[in-house]
Structures are given as structure tokens and as C-alpha cells.
Design a protein around this nucleic acid. Sequence first.
RNA 1: GUGGGUGUAGCUCAGUUGGUCAGAGUGCCUGGUUGUGGCCCAGGAGGUCGAGGGUUCAAGUCCCUUCACUCACCCCA
Length: 420
Amino acid sequence: MAKITSVRGFRDILPDETPKWQGVEEKIRKTFSKFGVREIRIPVLEKTELFKRGIGEATDIVEKEMYTFLDRGNEYLTMRPEATASVIRAYIEHHIYEKDPVAKLFTIGPMFRRERPQKGRFRQFHQINVEFLGQEDPRIDAELMFMLMCLLREAGIDNLKLEINSLGCDTCRPAFREKIINFLKDREQDLCDDCRRRLLTNPLRIFDCKNESCREIIAEAPVVMDFICGQCSEHFGKVQEYLELLRIPFTVNTKMVRGLDYYTRTAFEVTTQSLGAQNAVTGGGRYDGLVQMLGGPDISGIGFAIGFDRLISMIPDEDTSYIDRPDIFIAALGDKAQCFAFSLCNTLRMAGVRTEMDFSNRGLKSQMKRSNKLDCLRTLIIGEKEMEEGIAQLRNMSDGTQEPVDINDAEGIIKRIQLS
RNA sequence: GUGGGUGUAGCUCAGUUGGUCAGAGUGCCUGGUUGUGGCCCAGGAGGUCGAGGGUUCAAGUCCCUUCACUCACCCCA
């Protein structure tokens, strides 16, 4: 029979890796709880219209990366390519703002985009999303970024760079957009092919082109900062002040732009050197018009998405804080001892001790090997002699020392394990 | 969607101009030690050389097709 493999870009996360995922998630949840961020769980499937309206018709995501299909009910559905639109949909649908317009929400789960896979990029990938809704104060921008940097540090990752920018709001951005298009049109012949195309689709993206002649042009181009309105400028200034107050290192990157249409004002990105070309670990920003755009009241919001897969891949394998080894292995010889050990093994487990044993009925040597392979901290050796005397040998696998223990005193064994 | 790289044992990979080229290391099993792991030594199992076609007396090696993986562009987390 031919083997059936997983779908391209969809991968299995194997038991050797899951402890990292669980460990990081646990740390992140603790941080969220300190900041009063509560979990919301949302569906993986949404009506296609949600993303068209939320992310923007003309974006690459909506144009060519979504898993969309016609459902039997004759309705177009889409595997979500991002979470913010869904969170806002739920916030509106359940009238969460009626009870309290201020909401701090997070959600964790898989997203789907049909791109060509490469290092750090999969068709099913995982994001940790945070949305702070109902507050426009620049302190909320700073607090969100502060929390983000805290939780990345707690996950054991450093060497990160926080870059921020302001994209302006609905009133000042169109003017800037027009300015930049005019500026670039005059120099169109010096732009690369990609950028000439971008001029029509998404002119702001030309800002992060790597082509040298494009960069030269960009260097002289007008910057968002020079065009944003008074309020946006003041907001951005305050955000920087508060970031400094909270001692968060950052750099202003006036060329940073975002690929989703809903972003306004503050935009930010956390990047690293260690991921190859896909160097963004987190991207986020303010989206003051999104709630209204999705049919809700005029409520502002700001949020970010952490690329969970990328985050995990940055944790060095030497980081031992995520490994989880058995406390004890019971090596039992002979039917009587095996029987006794089977019972003891499960008693220890119920008492919270991570216990392993082996039913193959092989010799002590191979059971010791298995204990070693499983990286058990200790081995309890119970042979026929020990069964008769009621005294087993508790061996420390790192230094090879052994001590006698009373096999009928499970509590005594547990205490000894928990002490060392 | 576009371009490059790679597919040989469970894993990581050698394999020269076509001619003992079916290999190493590691992992696994057994033994050296009849009740003591790791280190060492010996032995063993394990592969339609990604798949299909072609050239040739002869193909892991050359040609064509195809699939998969991978990196980069694009884009993004």
C-alpha cells in the first residue's frame, strides 16, 4: 500500500517537541494573567466575507493565500488566515462592549495560509494573539508592547529587536499615500519590476524593498512621519515616552509598513537574527477603525500576533528548562516482583511521581538500559531476593549510588524521591 | 506563483570518469558480565539507492518525466 503523508506545509509536532510548546504556553498564560488578559476561544472556520472586509480585498492574504471553499449550504467559508478579525467579530456578536467596552483578550491557535513553505513558514502555523479593545490612550500601546517583551523574555528568548512606526489615521494616511505615489511615479523607471507592480497594489510596501536602486529612491522619499496629523503625531510621541518610562528598548523605523489593511497609527514588529529570512516573531499595531468596519460601534483597538512556531524554533535545544524526565524506573525480576512492581508503579503515579517500568520480563541489564534510555533519575531494583526480604535497592542513575528502601512503605519511597 | 539545492539503512550522510558500490557513523537487538545502565569490545537484523521511463553488455552514477523535501524571492507571524 502506498504511504499517505501529511499535506504540504502542514506538519506534525512530535512528542520530543511538545514539552517546549506546553512550557512556553504555560509561561505566557501566567504573564497574561498578571496583565488581566483573558482567553477567548474562537472557531477556525469563518465566513469568507469576514476576512475580505477585515483584512482588505487587495491584500495578498485575501487575494491568493486563503483556504476558501463553497460549503454545502452554498456559502463561502474560509480557514482563518489570522485571528484578529475573528476576535473582533466575536466581540461584536456577543455585545461584549455593552458590558464593558474595555476588553483585554488573547487567543491561541492554528492559522492557515496557502503560501510556499520555507524556513519558519508553514501553511498551518500557530499564533498567540492579543487584542486590547476600547482604549485609545498611548499608555495602552506602551503597556501592550511592554507585556509582549516581558513574555518573550520569560519564554527564554533574547536578542530581539522592537521596531515601531506610526502609519497615521484615516484622515492623514490618504494624503501621504498620494504624496508617495506621486513621488515614486516620477522615478518609476528606476524601480525594480516588483516595485513597479507595488506602485499599483500596495505602494507603501516599496519601503522595505531590498533592491539597491529602490533603496536609494526610498532614502529620499517623504516619510509618513512628516505627513501624519497633529493628533497622530502627538499619540506617537507619547507612545515613545511611555516606552522609555517602562525601559523598553526600541527603534523607530519609519519605513516599516504592515501587510494588513486595518492597521492605523502605532505599528510594531519584533524581529530576530536567528530565523533566516522569515525574521518576524511578532507583528502588531493599532486598528482604530476595524470594529466599526465589521459592523460594531466606533471602538478602538490594538493588538499583536506572535508566531508560535517561530518562537519555539528560537529556543535553543540546550535550554533544559523544558525537558521533563521520569523520577523513577522500577526494574522488577520474576513474576512476583513484576506483579508487585506493577501495583507500586501506579501507586507512585497517583502520588504524583513520574514512574516508568517495563513489562518485557527481560533481565536486569536490559531493564537498566531502558531506565537509562528514558533518562530516569532513579531506578528501584526489585528482584526475588528483595521480595523475600522486603527491601529493595534505590539506585541514583547519575552517580550510581544505591540505598535500601522498604518496598512496603510507599510513602517512605515517595518522600525520598521528593527530597532529592 | 518564480528560481536554486537535495532525495542511498529508523536517523545523519559517504559512494571519484558508468564496471565488488550496497557502505560508514549513529540508533536498535544479542553477547562479553547467569542480578546493575552510561564507556569499551564482538556479532546480528535492517535498503525495490524517491517514483516512472530511456540510453547501455552494464545505471545509485548519464538523459527525460514526475513527486517529495528544502532554501530563497514574493508575502507575513
